[in-house]
Every structure is written in C-alpha cells, then in structure tokens.
Design a binder for these strands. Structure first.
Lengths: 108, 108
DNA sequence: CTCCTTATTCGACGTTCGTAGTACATCGAA
DNA sequence: TTCGATGTACTACGAACGTCGAATAAGGAG
C-alpha cells in the first residue's frame, strides 16, 4: 500500500501506554539518536531535513520506530510529514529521563 | 570451551569507554532490566539467584551483554560469579542516567 | 575419590532488526 | 497537465538477537 495520507491516521501510543523498554530500544540506535538530538534542538522538522546518511525508506522505518515507541509525534501537512519530540508526555511519564539521555548523548 | 575461570579474565570496558547506545540497548530487554533492578536493591548477588525464568545459558548471555556494555561488574569467587552494578562509573560518565532509568522502570 | 552445584561455551533454532531498492501516491510549481 | 520533490509501502536480505539444550569445567561437601 502506498502512503495512506488522510485515510489511515498515524499510530501514536497514549501517554500512559508509552513503554520504557520500547523507548530505550528506540534510542539505542545511532541514526535514531541523531534524529532525537536534532529534534531536541529544533522543535519541529520535516523528515527529509535530518543529518543522517540513510536511504529514504530506511529513514521512514526509523521514524516509525520512534513514533510507535512514543518518542516523537508526527503530523502531516500537505506533502510533508513534520516530526517533533513528545517532550511533555515523556516528562510526565518518565520525569527527567529524556533530558538525562540527551545530556548523556553529548558525552565524549 | 568451558568456563575459563582463571585463564581468561572477564571483559569489562573502561569507564570512559562505556557507550551510551550500548547501555540503552542493554537495558531495553525485560530480563536484563529485571537483573539491573535486582542489583539496584542488592549490592552484590550471585548469578543463579535472580528472579528470572530463563535457562542458565540464557542468563549467562544476558550477563555478558550487561557486562560488556559496562552496566555491571562481575568477579569470580570460588565456584560462583558475583555481579554488581557499576553505579559509580555510570554516574561519573552519565550523571543521573541510571537513577532516572531505574525510577522510570517502576512506573505503572 | 565421588557427587552435586554453579556457570560456562558451543551449536542450533526462530525472530527481530537495520538497510536498501522498487514502485507508488500526494502535493506544489511550472 | 506535466514534472519534480517528498515520503511511504512492500519486499528482500544479511546480521544480530533471545532462547534453549547438551557438553564441559571448576569448586565444595561428603
């Protein structure tokens, strides 16, 4: 099936359904960590504007992993898909976790 | 090869060599998370005394993943292998990370 | 010494993962 | 309308993962 656009809405877990192990797994990949770091600096960003060197289909896969883990939220606008960190939801469910991980990701 | 005991020492990464993505990956498995939670409550514990329902060889595998990620330290004493959290090393390299993850792991 | 406990290595199995190529649908501009 | 840009779905493949059983080795108790 091609891109469903308006027919099939994007799947996002509820705040209370976010699973810690899924979050940790989602963040344990270098490409996805780069995506999250980029989103931490830019509140909202289109898919194709991330500094990663992977094929577009691979990028789609990583965005889905992050989205289904509850780390990011995606919304469609025209032809683009905008991604943003679910900072509030994550801070509410796992206080301070995201900040610590992002801080740790900058260690040498 | 059977257990090398004294010949091949256990492999532990140096404090500065601990990689965040390896840590997150190590903690993204439920069995290993249970191990870490148990070690957080008990300072040192023998391998066979953890509340997990897996085969001994599987347990050995999980301990190796945690050890090579730098999450735990293992030392041999007689016939037993004692495991402990590398709390100081982790706190020094990634301040607060372990505490946040452990705190998050208790969320309903 | 013999036996049991502890924990390992090895090999095997299914599953999941990261990656890419191809085809395709949508949008916007020329 | 045509065309390019954007991003996805599907498919496939090799690698890594979680799991286990069997064989093995070392230590401790009898």
């Amino acid at each position: 099936m091609p891109r469903p656009s308006r027919s099939a809405p994007l799947v996002h877990p509820e705040r209370d359904q976010i699973d810690l192990l899924d979050v940790l797994h989602a963040l344990s990949d270098s490409t996805r960590m780069t995506i999250v770091q980029t989103l931490a600096a830019n509140p909202e960003q289109a898919c194709g504007t991330f500094p990663v060197q992977v094929a577009p289909s691979t990028l789609t896969h990583h965005f889905r992993v992050l989205r289904e883990a509850g780390v990011i939220r995606q919304r469609e606008e025209g032809n683009r898909r905008w991604s943003s960190l679910r900072t509030d939801d994550l801070n509410d469910r796992y206080p301070g976790l995201l900040d610590r991980i992002l801080q740790a990701s900058t260690a040498p």
